Measured scan of single mutants.
Amino acid sequence: LKKGSQVEALFSYEATQPEDLEFQEGDIILVLSKVNEEWLEGECKGKVGIFPKVFVEDC
Rank of each mutant, 00 (worst) to 15 (best):
I29K: 08
A15C: 08
K47S: 10
D58K: 14
G26N: 05
E43S: 12
E8C: 15
E19P: 00
E25Y: 00
E22W: 01
V48L: 02
D20A: 10
E25T: 13
L10E: 03
N36L: 00
T16R: 06
D20T: 04
V35R: 09
E22D: 04
V56Q: 04
V35P: 10
D20N: 02
V56N: 07
F51A: 03
G49K: 12
Q17H: 11
L1S: 10
E37P: 01
K53M: 05
L1D: 05
V54C: 14
K3G: 02
L1I: 13
S33N: 13
K47C: 03
G49Q: 04
E41K: 14
W39E: 09
V35A: 12
Q17D: 03
E14G: 09
G42T: 01
K34D: 12
E8F: 15
F23W: 01
K45V: 02
Q6I: 11
C59E: 15
C59T: 14
E38R: 00
L10K: 04
K45G: 04
L10Q: 00
V48W: 01
D27L: 09
E57M: 06
V31S: 04
N36A: 12
L30V: 12
E43G: 11
G26C: 05
K45S: 03
G26W: 01
Q24T: 09
I28E: 12
K47E: 01
N36H: 09
L10I: 08
E57Y: 10
N36V: 03
E25D: 01
K47L: 08
N36S: 04
I50N: 01
K53P: 02
G49L: 07
L32K: 14
G4S: 01
E38L: 03
D20L: 12
V54E: 11
S5G: 00
K47A: 00
L40R: 10
G42P: 07
P52W: 00
I50Q: 03
F55R: 05
E38A: 08
L40C: 04
Q24N: 12
K34Q: 10
L1K: 05
S12I: 12
L30D: 14
E8A: 14
S12V: 01
L30P: 13
W39L: 01
E8Y: 14
E57H: 11
T16C: 07
K3L: 08
Q6G: 02
E37L: 03
Q24I: 03
E41C: 13
K47P: 01
S12N: 10
C44W: 10
S12K: 04
G49C: 02
K2E: 07
K53C: 01
F51T: 10
P52F: 06
S12A: 11
F51E: 13
C59S: 12
D20E: 15
G49Y: 05
C59Q: 07
Q6S: 03
E43Q: 12
K53L: 02
E41N: 03
E41M: 14
E43P: 01
F11V: 13
Q24M: 08
I28R: 14
Q17I: 07
L32Y: 09
D27M: 07
K53S: 07
V35W: 12
L21D: 08
G46Y: 08
L40F: 05
Q6C: 08
L40D: 05
F23E: 12
L21T: 07
K2A: 13
P52T: 08
Q24L: 05
K2Q: 15
S33Q: 11
P52Q: 03
E8W: 15
K34T: 15
K53G: 12
E43I: 04
S33Y: 05
P18L: 01
E41A: 07
A15W: 06
G42N: 06
L30N: 15
Y13Q: 14
S5M: 14
K45L: 04
E22A: 13
L40P: 12
K3H: 00
S5D: 15
G49T: 00
E22S: 14
C59R: 10
L10A: 11
L40W: 09
K2L: 06
C59L: 11
V31K: 03
K53N: 07
I28P: 13
V48A: 12
Q6L: 15
A15H: 00
D27T: 03
V7K: 00
K2F: 13
C59V: 15
Q24C: 10
G26Q: 00
